[in-house]
């Protein structure tokens, strides 16, 4: 091709520059954010605890010793013992398993279902959009914990049903987020360009719309895990989640609240555990938002 030689492009200084994907840029700015790194550290810390709880816990989860009921913290029992003489430290470690499990699984469920509905509503519009959006409106018209209680009342109180309830109440949040994101991505010229190339709707959705909507989902999901953990603990506290003898943080609070005067440590440590875990996810979520999606900042 003879014409080639004539063509020069206006800047060649880029030649040596590395390829930088938007994700890598996000990670770079996340790494600079100390607060976010603290959050990530807390989350990783609790994940390690959750995974290795059986190895880390000095006592069994339901190992009772009635002679040491409601004993204060000591070298043998770092967080003291509860009314059954169980080691609170061990139970708090095991509790991390339940809380993280509920948080991760329920939010994954909400993300999957929410995204599915949101994409359909946003991409196809018309009556499907109207129906789905109205359903979301209706679900969001209930204070979330109330809706969760109602769902548990139907399904019966158990940890698993609490998880399902939490997943359900979070669906509309993700659905709406994705729907609005799809609507705005749809307006982008590169979607028009994709259609001009001859792409099918399905391919446009999965190769263009979804990847460009991913950042806000990740941010929202991280923050939602924080909320889900609190909600699970709240349901446990109300007796509508985990059942005895499960070592769930909220349930532990509820069980020991009557001994709060004699043994405040029974209430103190599970609560601190909830707070720290939730704080970790919140810090991480904030950091991710600043790194991945600066425009989303409130």
């Amino acid at each position: 091709m003879p014409v080639l030689a004539k063509r020069e492009n206006e800047t060649n200084q880029l030649q040596q520059e590395e390829a930088v994907s938007p994700w890598r840029e996000g990670w770079k700015s996340f790494k600079k954010n100390k607060v976010a790194l603290v959050g990530l550290g807390i989350v990783l810390f609790f994940m390690i605890i959750a995974v290795f709880a059986p190895l880390l816990a000095p006592y069994g989860i339901n190992e009772q010793e009635l002679s040491i009921r409601n004993n204060p913290p000591s070298p043998e029992h770092w967080f003291g013992t509860d009314d059954f003489g169980r080691d609170i430290f061990s139970r708090v470690l095991y509790g991390a398993r339940i809380s993280l499990w509920v948080g991760l699984v329920s939010v994954s469920g909400s993300v999957i279902v929410g995204c599915f509905l949101g994409i359909i509503a946003g991409y196809y519009g018309r009556w499907i959009d109207t129906v789905i959006s109205r359903i979301f409106d209706i679900m969001l018209a209930f204070p979330s914990i109330l809706l969760a209680i109602a769902v548990v009342a139907v399904l019966g109180p158990s940890l698993q049903n609490a998880l399902i309830a939490i997943a359900i109440i979070n669906i509309p949040n993700f659905g709406r987020l994705i729907r609005s994101k799809v609507l705005s991505v749809k307006q982008e010229e590169y979607i028009m360009a994709a259609r001009a190339v001859g792409m099918s709707d399905g391919r446009i959705l999965f190769h263009h719309v979804l990847p460009n909507s991913l950042a806000p989902i990740i941010v929202q999901a991280t923050l939602a895990i924080a909320t889900a953990i609190i909600e699970a603990a709240a349901l446990g506290f109300l007796g509508m989640g985990a059942q005895p003898p499960q070592a769930e943080w909220g349930k532990m609070l509820a069980d020991s609240r009557q001994y709060i005067i004699q043994a405040p440590w029974t209430v103190l440590f599970p609560g601190i555990a909830i707070m720290l875990t939730v704080l970790g996810f919140n810090l991480m979520g904030d950091g991710l938002r600043d790194a991945l999606d600066p425009k989303m900042k409130n």
Binding site: S21, E189, Y190, M192, A193, A196, H208, P211, N212
Partner: peptide, 11 residues
């Protein structure tokens, strides 16, 4: 397309 900033998928 007109806008080379908008018509290429950034990801």
């Amino acid at each position: 397309f007109q806008d080379p900033y908008a018509s290429l998928n950034p990801r």
